[in-house]
Design a protein around this nucleic acid. Structure first.
Length: 826
RNA sequence: GCGCGCCUGGCGAAACCUGGUAUACGCGCAAGAUUUAGGUUCUUGUGUCUUCGGACGUGGGGGUUCGAAUCCCCCGGCGCGCACCA
């Protein structure tokens, strides 16, 4: 045994012991049978194999591991799995750059990270290990696709979609952040392409409603972000006849009460509607405009104060309530894929419409009197409550009455109906890249889109014969001609495979279902193990997935529930977002030159001190600025713990804690109770502070020769063992080492969380605080059952109180026995 | 623009849920002990001012209360999310 604390030596010492004892495998299957425990499923958002582990991994997984280990220590049977999100663009780009096979790059990195996680002391059950890029996994991703396809929830359509010119692929709406590609930051443009979508919009209402189940369990801001993303609006559809056109065009409005104020009509320039409605005279003008719009990136489109543009389509629309003819325009401020892609424009009561009206010299007609100045004069649209004017028989109604009345009249007359629309769009899942699960569809000239039969899954990625580099929206797989050419499963004729692959977010939207039966070759998951472990009790990961991953996973689980494979509506009962590790105020990056290398920190301080430093720096959800913290402090503490336990050694071994010194025990049990309470709320920073206090308390006792008496030794032992057990959730290697120093058999994990003797928490005396006019003047120790009268008397007798009163009479005395007296002067 | 969150010593932070001793724990700093020295380790001190009685102090202002870091309102600063969604 080393003669002082050796932060890295203990890593090599204890890893093989944990492996041998199978410490992190759930007890009631495979390991020690200890049936009857409650189960908990604790999951960390799985890593992307982008290289070696970095500071962010240590932070995120350190928090997840503390949660998992705390849950284990509290006596639950815990499944804490690990896997890799190993398909995706970055791997492919990195491989391209190095002229490597993406497999090689990916699986090499996974090995490096696997070893890194082990050496960080993660309590994973390695049997769960999965990689989304394994055929044994993506087979089931494809299987899931086919189930969606069967039910019409996976479909292909031509649409203007987000296109990243740098990554040469389409992107889901959720992957466009402020107009830029989520991965590379390039400005995203629009392209008309035929793409695969999942009909997540069918689930919009349930995704919104079921958030009630998550309230208080998920971070509020995540719920808010999802709510806003789904974006429910209530209003009405209104059908407008178009002059010289045989079918009416429907619009959505949240303000049917302003129908009489509609003075023009706008369709999205890039929607098929515009092409359908345009007159021959205006066709050239429209094409030129659409061309101009398409070239504009989202960033430019959204620029502040950008003037409204558009082009007349040369027709009129007819307002169903008053027969008025209003001109029809195409403009880019109307979105093709929201609502119906067309709007009635009410410039008086919508700022965007007013801006357009002023740019094109169109009529502004106020129909709701709000008491504000006329929008036609001010250029400021009014949207508040008021009374209807210029609206025929609806004049005089309040806004809300009018909304209901007009919606009802539209329905009765067959001109529309009340409606709800969502901002959420269908999920674009196809990608023109190589490193993802091939879409399991075969295109046959006779049969159309034919699903690959289940028994032919997986559709494996070809391992050669393709050109990896994507180009102009063509998938790399198109160049793998042998792979593409196939027979139609339906008619047996010549056919071709779909050459797109699925987005990596499809892989990750169901992986937590696969862990308990990661090796199952027969089915997507084992229903018995699902029943045993799912849904996820604790899900730990970054807030960057607040919408993307968490929304998609919720959708997939609801779908699997609908087809009878799952019995719960939500995948994650509780979500915790950890903060980031930053350096000197900003995110670490190579270009800023402020990278902190995790491996160097580990070499200097060992994994326990690094983990503790992050956990102790603040609450889990706060960022940690590495410039503000120092592992030397936590390292010093771990050394003190080690020396304390070395000095205690086997003293007091085998004694009944109840025989221990009461004064020491009282202090110990208070600290255990408080640390437990803090851990229950994931306030690990405060819990660690309590463990530090416990260390100091025990050190002082040992220095005062507590070990010289039987009762002192018993109490110190109880405290030191409690310290080791609690330390194990933050600094697992050190905890194991000191547990051994105390003369115990490994593993400390099996010892569980220390219990608290409630009798020791009951205090006989407390400090009573005496205030004069709310300001602290005196305090004294009193019995917990001191009466109001006794306390009042003792307070008034205090010299300090009399001095503060300075001769003033006492108006009243507030007594809150036994802790407080407030003397209020007259 | 809309929505949300945060603001406490030189620094990271406690106490806010449940109003009642503000600054737990750690870093840093200072002094002392140990050491040949540096480092390490240990001890003590560390909100500001002070006439040593106290006074002031949780971004600013106001309110509720016997009593406010804590609850309410206004303002400022910082951060985050959304952003032409009809």
């Amino acid at each position: 045994m080393a003669d002082d604390y050796d932060p890295n030596g203990i890593v090599d010492k204890w890893l093989p012991v944990w492996d041998r004892l199978r410490v992190f495998e759930p007890r009631d299957e495979g390991g020690v049978d200890d049936g009857g425990r409650e189960r908990r499923y604790v999951v960390d958002m799985f890593p992307y194999p982008s290289g070696d582990l970095h500071m962010g991994h240590a932070e995120a997984f350190g928090i997840g591991d503390a949660v998992a280990r705390y849950t284990m220590m509290r006596g639950y049977d815990v499944l804490h799995p690990v896997g890799w999100d190993s398909f995706g663009l970055p791997a492919e780009n990195a491989a391209l750059k190095r002229n490597m096979d993406p497999r090689e790059w990916t699986y090499d990195n996974i090995e490096v990270q696997r070893e890194g996680f082990r050496r960080l002391g993660m309590s994973f059950d390695w049997r769960t290990r999965l990689h989304t890029s394994d055929p044994g996994y993506y087979r089931w991703t494809q299987w899931l696709f086919l189930r969606l396809f069967e039910r019409g929830l996976a479909y292909r359509k031509a649409a203007p979609v987000n296109w990243c010119p740098n990554d040469q692929t389409v992107l889901a709406n959720e992957q466009v952040i402020a107009g830029k590609c989520e991965r590379c930051g390039t400005e995203v443009t629009k392209k008309n392409l035929t793409q695969w979508f999942f009909r997540i919009t069918d689930y919009a209402e349930r995704l919104l409603d079921d958030m009630a189940l998550l309230e208080g369990q998920w971070p509020d801001r995540v719920l808010t972000m999802q709510r806003n993303w789904i974006g429910r609006s209530t209003g009405a559809y209104v059908d407008f006849r178009i002059e010289g056109h045989d079918r009416p065009i429907r619009v959505f409005t949240t303000r049917p009460d302003t129908l009489f104020g509609a003075t023009f009509f706008v369709v999205a320039a890039d929607s098929p509607l515009a092409a359908e409605l345009v007159t021959d005279e205006q066709r050239a003008a429209l094409s030129a405009y659409v061309e101009q719009v398409r070239k504009t990136t989202d960033i430019e489109r959204l620029a502040e104060g950008r003037p409204k543009t558009g082009v007349s389509l040369g027709r009129s629309a007819i307002n169903p309530v008053n027969g008025e003819q209003i001109p029809v325009y195409a403009a880019d401020y109307v979105l093709a894929d929201y609502g119906t892609g067309a709007i009635m424009a009410v410039p008086a009561h919508d700022q965007r419409d007013l801006d357009f009206a002023r740019a094109f010299g169109l009529t502004v007609r106020k129909v709701v009197e709000t008491g504000d100045d006329d929008p036609a004069d001010t250029g400021i649209a009014t949207s508040g409550d008021g009374t209807l004017v210029n609206s025929g028989r609806y004049d005089g109604m309040r806004k809300v009455e009018a909304i209901a009345a007009i919606a009802e009249d539209l329905r009765r007359d067959g001109h529309g109906e009340a409606a709800i629309t969502y901002r959420l769009r269908d999920w674009l899942v196809s990608r023109q890249r190589y490193w993802g699960p091939p879409i399991p569809i075969i295109h046959c000239s006779a049969c159309g889109e034919v699903p690959v039969p289940d028994e032919d899954l997986p559709v494996r990625l070809p391992e050669s014969g393709y050109e990896l580099r994507p180009e102009g929206g063509r998938s790399p797989l198109e160049s793998a001609t042998d792979w593409v050419t196939t027979k139609c499963p339906s008619c047996g004729g010549d056919a071709t495979r779909d050459t797109d692959t699925m987005d990596t977010f499809v892989d990750s939207s169901w992986y937590f279902l696969r862990y308990p039966s990661a090796q199952d070759a027969e089915r997507i998951f084992d229903p018995e193990l699902i029943a045993r472990w799912l849904p996820v009790d604790e899900y730990i990961g970054g807030v960057e997935h607040a919408i993307l991953h968490l929304l998609y996973s919720r959708f997939c689980v609801k779908f699997l529930q609908d087809i009878g494979l799952l019995s719960f509506p939500e995948p994650f009962l509780r979500v915790t977002n950890q903060g980031q590790v930053i350096m000197a105020g900003s995110a670490m990056s190579k270009s800023k030159g402020n990278l902190v290398n995790l491996q160097e920190e580990l070499a200097k301080y060992g994994p326990d001190a690094v983990r503790l430093t992050m956990l102790f720096a603040g609450p889990p959800e706060e960022d940690v600025d590495w410039a503000d913290v120092s592992p030397t402090g936590t390292m010093k503490w771990l050394t003190r713990v080690w020396r304390l336990c070395r000095d205690v050694g086997v003293a007091g071994r085998g004694t009944d804690p109840a025989t221990g010194d009461v004064e020491i025990r009282t202090g110990v049990h208070k600290l255990i109770a408080d640390a437990t309470e803090q851990c229950d709320h994931k306030r690990f920073n405060v819990a660690i502070a309590r463990l530090m206090e416990l260390t100091t308390l025990l050190r002082k006792a040992v220095d005062a020769d507590a070990l010289g008496s039987a009762s002192g030794a018993a109490a110190v032992r109880e405290g030191a063992e409690a310290l080791a057990r609690m330390l194990s959730i933050f600094g697992p290697f050190t905890a194991e080492e000191v547990w051994e120093l105390l003369g115990n058999e490994p593993s400390v994990v099996f010892a569980g969380w220390p219990s608290i003797d409630p009798a020791l928490l009951v205090e006989d005396t407390v400090t009573c605080v005496v205030q004069v006019a709310g300001k602290l003047r005196d305090k004294f120790e009193v019995s917990v059952d001191a009466t109001e009268d006794q306390l009042r008397e003792q307070a008034l007798a205090s010299e300090a109180v009399q001095r503060a009163l300075d001769g003033r009479p006492v108006r009243t005395v507030i007594v809150r026995p036994p802790r407080l007296v407030n003397v209020v002067p007259g």
